[in-house]
Design a protein around this nucleic acid. Sequence first.
DNA 1: TGGATGTACTTATAGACAGCATGTC
DNA 2: CTATAAGTACATCCA
Length: 851
Amino acid sequence: MSDEGGSEKFSLSGFDFDARLKSFLEKKWGIASLFPPQAESLPHALDGSNLLLAIPTASGKSLVAHITMTNRLANDLKGLRGVYIVPLKALASEKFRELEEMATAVGLKVGLAIGDRSSEMTSIEDSDILVCTSEKLDSLIRGRPEIMDDIGIVVADEFHLLQDPNRGPTLEILLSRIRHRRSNAQLLALSATVGNAEEVAEWLGAKLIVSDWRPVALYSGTLTGLEVRYHSVEGPIGEGEPLPEEKHLEGGVQKNLHAVLDDTIGQMKQLLVFVSSRSSAQKEARELAKHVISRMAVSGDVIPTEKVANWELIAERVSSGDESSATVKALSNSIRGGIAFHHAGLTSSHRKVVEDGFKNGDLLCIVATPTLAQGVNLPASRVVVRDTRRWSTIAARSMPLPVMEIRQMMGRAGRPGFDDFGEALLVSKSTEEERALVSLYLEGEPEEITSKLANPNALRAEEDGALLTHLLSIIATAGIEDRDAISRFLDKTFLATQMDTENLEERVDDVICWLSNNGMIQRTGESEEVRIRIREVKSEGNEDEDWEDELPAWVGSASQIPGLEILPEERSGRRLEPRRGPAIFGFRKASLYESAEPVLPESPTMTYAPTALGSLIARLYLNPISGKLIHDGLGKAMAILSGEDDARQLSPLSLLHLAACTPDFLPLWPRKNDLDAIQEVLHGHERELLAESIDLEEERRMKGVLVVQSWMEEDRLESIEEEWGVQPGDLRSRVELLEWLLFAMRRILLEDEGFATKNRESHKTLFESIDEVYRRVRFGCRADILGLVAIKGVGRKRAREMSDALGVSSASDVSLLTERDRGKLANLRGWSPKLVDNLVKSASISDKRGR
DNA sequence: TGGATGTACTTATAGACAGCATGTC
DNA sequence: CTATAAGTACATCCA
């Protein structure tokens, strides 16, 4: 952190907060004064006002949040809890480290809650500040709503993600739930610049602070051929700062990215290049690395030798322990030329190594796909956006990226404390394209953000499940249990500000009908109490201004007209019309989504209760459609095992496929080459499949199954990658998804009374089958060595070697090994007597624990 | 005739949250 | 409806 570059100084002493924090900031972080937007917003934040800060990334808006959070919790909100919500696990870890450092200065404890085994050091109960992903907090709240009761302050980072079709609805409901229960809690929303910040701020009841001030000047421009032209500047001085002259990069006929890299290296700076596909990222990294190496051969003095030596170290770190997949080989080869690529085909540990190598200043350049821009803080002196369009499979054509995304990328330029200015260049191929890019991305406004909670334009099943998921959660875990209360809860969401009431009410009725028809909730009858409450609220009119002022239009008519004369014919008539286009995508196609009869509107006084299944689904954090599919599939599996169904048969494939058929699983795109193998299994093993073909993604889902099956057959990672064209990060993510879903499947079976009483023996057999598949997926091995991988320090590889060499199959076997057998193991390649000793010790521990 | 090179055509395409309870090579 | 990289089948060229 640095305060250089600011024309005005706002000394910390001018602000009213804890002296311990001020001294911490000065001594530990070297912060003696605040930037103008920080200075403007901090007093309001310290007052306890809700704020929406729409300020560029890297301008220090999280400092405002950190100071406010720690100061208030240590002083005027003593004893209460703060939550810091971020969208990514990696961001949560980053914020956790920052906040922990700062919070200890005032004696507060910070906890990290992400769905990750290793990282939850501090107990959640115990922490004053909880850093979490939105899904994890939502999940915690579902299990124990009372953890909200002592929330005094909420920070929502990257708040513009509200408009993300996949992740936005969770954030929207999460905030609505917290505000519903803790209406006095302070809210600080940190957002990128968006088109409709006023509207969002109004919804949040927040004061809006907008600024494009940056601590380091940002020159934005274009790169056409070798010509660099600057078009705008945002910086510490503000309007009127002169634009740099346009310039011609040296480099003769070579490619323009090579010329930019040379120029950047010449200035001893680093470069970040954004491209639109993984293959582009790898290709550019490969070519740039080759270019660097050939340049070093010509004139060896360009790059300090210790840097070059570090490239080798970084290259070894990315490939260490790895069986050296094609992707990892490509990465380490590029790194040997000082260039890395960064995309989701890499595992998070690969990405971490790359990020650290860049932050240290060793790597010259990272070529990345767009999401690096919304990840951890990784500034570079220069940013080049090579691709401003991205292929959309859904639209089957390339689409321009949203202004907001491009701005996020460009905003990565300029390292506070190191650079006097940053440069962000958009690559264009012609002057016409250059003009278009300038007007869209440099002069144009960013998009408005909209609610995706009930996305009428949902194109994929998983984008459409939000309302289903969250209504079940609200009924099952929030104590909002009648139709009127549901309406009033939803009326406070951002969605309600954007969708007309009648339309929304229809969608809600659809969802309730689905949840009821599929055994997630029960209608528990109309309530006189609710009727009285509605009457009272209505007659009180606008007296209660918090929740009861805007009743849905139909509530009035429903209470005036007695009985069910709420125009059922008219409404059901409208319902029969295809409101959301042909059901070509996904789950609503089959009986799964639509009921045979028209849906009648729910009475506002109707009350609901979750079923045991519904309640479990909500707590397992499953999409209700996933829950339904799994539950039905388990019913079929029970029928097979009990002998009722002898046409089908049950296998590990059955269970994997069932899990992969849910909307919570992410399918893999088959290549042309994969289709034969996939079709063969789909048809050859049809008798083993428990789930119907419920969408058009059968092949994609089966590919996911086959890849994970290959993993649990102990195939080598590199051969899986080779055979299926699936990179390490993809494999990892599918393994984790199936592991999670199989765990959920096991719980659903375990807790279902119906299954358990129907046939105890089949129930037990099925439970054991799921458990075995679950563990095989988790450890990536065949069944015979499951006893060995349970030993600490033993993975699938060592387990197989032990099994092959000695025929052992359990922790108990290993703990009782003879001296001779131990010697045999120690002589294997990659083993040592010390390792064998350690493993035998931990085997006896697991053995005791297992009994 | 074999091998290098060129050309037209085909194919594929970004990302990543959640449960639970201790540790991969 | 302004994409682009990589792979493939096959033609062409040259020693």
